[in-house]
């Protein structure tokens, strides 16, 4: 019976981000949520457990405020969780997240399968899954939209540029999932209440042996401004000419002969 880890990230719910007067991001009244594709990862682990037994262990690396996210993950079907929490874990970059996850998973969480979302809702760097697989020296299957375990092997359908690719891998393995793989359930009231009683282990930074320094520095984050303009054109040939001229003036298409 497979032991399955579902990695998730507690991200800002983008619906609450506002644009400040200088174009800065106003995060003063944001809510947080489990990153969308990571919900698919948890759901897929729960589905596999329904089919094959085993257990589902949600794991996250985050600041201590993400405790609510751990409950959320448990309410979505996790059996027990690992919460790698420290004030220093605000805004980790993907290489740090992957390295921290690798240390904790290698030393403390026996596993047959690790599921991650294809990318996170905030950065969408798509790096944590593949980096984590490299650290653990296990196969990584990305862009997965269908997954099953057959005779102890993983069968995964990957969405690739020119169609579908079906691959098999021995366990243990790591899979990054696309949102098409399933529709995550909305937890019921009892699921949420029960989650508060499920066990979870908190791992502090000073329990880790690695240093995990950052390599990137964020210099500036600015909101883009989208301007909407509306002009009406008719359907006569001269209207079409006027329409094209208007697009050229706005720089939406190139100049004639350009």
């Amino acid at each position: 019976m497979p032991e399955m880890i579902a990695c998730f990230k507690w991200v800002i719910d983008e619906a609450y981000i506002r644009r400040g007067p200088e174009g800065e991001l106003d995060l003063s009244s944001v809510n947080y949520k489990i990153s969308e594709y990571d919900r698919n990862a948890i759901e897929e682990a729960v589905r596999l457990r329904e089919a094959h037994g085993g257990s589902v262990i949600p794991v996250t690396v985050a600041a201590p405020e993400a405790a609510k996210g751990v409950k959320d993950a448990l309410s979505r079907g996790g059996d027990r969780a690992f919460f790698i929490a420290d004030e220093a874990f605000h805004d980790l970059e993907p290489s740090q997240t992957a390295a921290v996850l690798a240390e904790v998973i290698r030393s403390r969480i026996p596993h047959d399968l690790i599921l991650c979302g294809e990318g996170s809702g905030d950065l969408y760097a798509q790096q944590v899954g593949p980096r984590l697989a490299e650290h653990l020296e296990i196969p990584c299957i990305s862009f997965v939209q269908k997954l099953s375990i057959e005779q102890g092997r993983l069968i995964a359908e990957r969405k690739v540029e020119e169609g579908l690719e079906v691959v098999a891998a021995p366990l243990p393995a790591l899979v990054t999932v696309l949102p098409d793989i399933n529709v995550p359930r909305i937890p019921g009231v009892k699921d949420t209440l029960a989650a508060a009683k499920k066990p979870f282990v908190t791992v502090k930074r000073d329990e880790l042996s690695g240093k995990y320094e950052a390599h990137l520095a964020t210099l500036l984050v600015r909101a883009t401004q989208m301007e909407r303009q509306c002009e009406r054109f008719g359907t006569q040939p001269e209207d079409v000419a006027r329409f094209l001229e208007s697009l050229r003036k706005k720089g939406a298409i190139g100049q004639k002969g350009g």
Binding site: D72, P187, T192
Partner: peptide
């Protein structure tokens, strides 16, 4: 729990 139930 109340916050999670609200968002659910």
């Amino acid at each position: 729990e109340q916050e999670l139930i609200r968002s659910n």
